[in-house]
């Protein structure tokens, strides 16, 4: 009898093959919470710092909890970033190429997945090459060509490559759609063909409706990557369009222009709290999008067969 009870206790603490015990569960949560904290640390740091008043920044007692909810930093960062205008342009610059890129990559992925093409392995090698080659190798001639065509600073300099499957990280989206269309049953396609559907009609009416998860995943990734991209945007859009990350990169300079350090009192000088507010404002729209879509997003990743082989 006591032997049995010890066994029972041991099974609760250590777990049996069919259910986890208390100890492994505690360990699991401890590790996850620790890693989660390390992950969130920069975000927490950024959020808290951006609410600190100049007094709090100087006060060594104030580490994690500001004494007041000070929003002056945000007001300044808002002006320095020219927030509403820059936000509008950033949304255009990330959503428009994404829409084109996702549709075109779906077409390309479909062609690769559903047809026995001559030279398919060469095509894959070339697509992989466009992903590997650092953009620095192709960006300079592109810039000079755009300059010649007077397209520098024009959104078209990002839209045209996206419409031709050469957008930012297009290769990944082609692969996502390739994986997705590979699993489409042949029988469905053949039935439609017997009914007289054309190749494009099959793509449009049979393949596309089943590819919603792939579209969601590609859309989110593409918007995020375009939003955060600063190398290509700096080279192609400089002087024409300002995105939030571009504006953040020259935050110090823009701040000096608005609040010259010789003109304002010491509390209005640029400090880390204002910088952190600017950083937070830059990524806030992405965070909002992510939290709205995340449930959908994670599910879609599982169903889209991301990174199959």
């Amino acid at each position: 009898m006591p032997r049995l009870r010890i066994d029972y206790l041991r099974r609760i603490v250590w777990g049996a093959h069919n259910r986890p015990g208390i100890l492994p569960t505690i360990l699991l949560y401890a590790v996850l919470i620790a890693i989660g904290f390390v992950y969130l640390y920069p975000l927490l740091f950024m959020t808290i710092t951006s609410f600190k008043s100049p007094d709090d920044l100087l006060n060594p007692m104030v580490q994690w909890v500001p004494t007041e909810l000070y929003i002056g930093n945000f007001q300044k960062a808002f002006r320095v970033l020219d927030y509403l205008e820059t936000l509008r342009e950033t949304i255009v610059i990330s959503v428009a190429p994404t829409a084109l890129q996702v549709v075109v990559c779906a077409l390309i992925g479909y062609g690769l997945a559903r047809y026995r093409l001559w030279g398919k392995s060469i095509l894959f090698a070339l697509i992989f090459a466009t992903f590997v080659i650092p953009p620095q190798n192709t960006v300079i001639p592109q810039m000079l060509n755009y300059r010649y065509l007077n397209l520098l600073g024009n959104p078209l300099s990002l839209l045209i490559p996206a419409a031709l499957g050469q957008g930012f990280k297009s290769a990944i989206f082609i692969l996502i759609f390739y994986q997705n269309f590979l699993s489409l049953p042949r029988a469905l396609e053949e039935a439609a063909r017997l009914d007289g559907a054309s190749d494009l009609g099959i793509f449009w009416r049979i393949a596309l409706p089943g590819a919603t998860p792939a579209f969601i995943v590609s859309f989110v990734f593409s918007v995020v990557w375009y939003w955060n991209e600063t190398y290509l945007t700096t080279v192609f859009l400089e002087g024409g369009i300002q995105t939030l990350p571009m504006q953040l990169a020259r935050f110090t300079q823009a701040y000096e222009n608005l609040y010259p350090s010789s003109m304002v009192n010491i509390f209005d000088r640029l400090n880390e709290a204002v910088k952190m507010s600017g950083t937070l404002l830059t990524i806030l729209p992405l965070l909002v999008m992510y939290f709205i879509l995340q449930r959908w997003f994670v599910e879609s990743i599982e169903r889209s067969g991301l990174a199959g082989e």
Partner: peptide
């Protein structure tokens, strides 16, 4: 994944 950009 969402917030990794150069300036940030």
């Amino acid at each position: 994944v969402v917030i990794t950009s150069g300036p940030v």
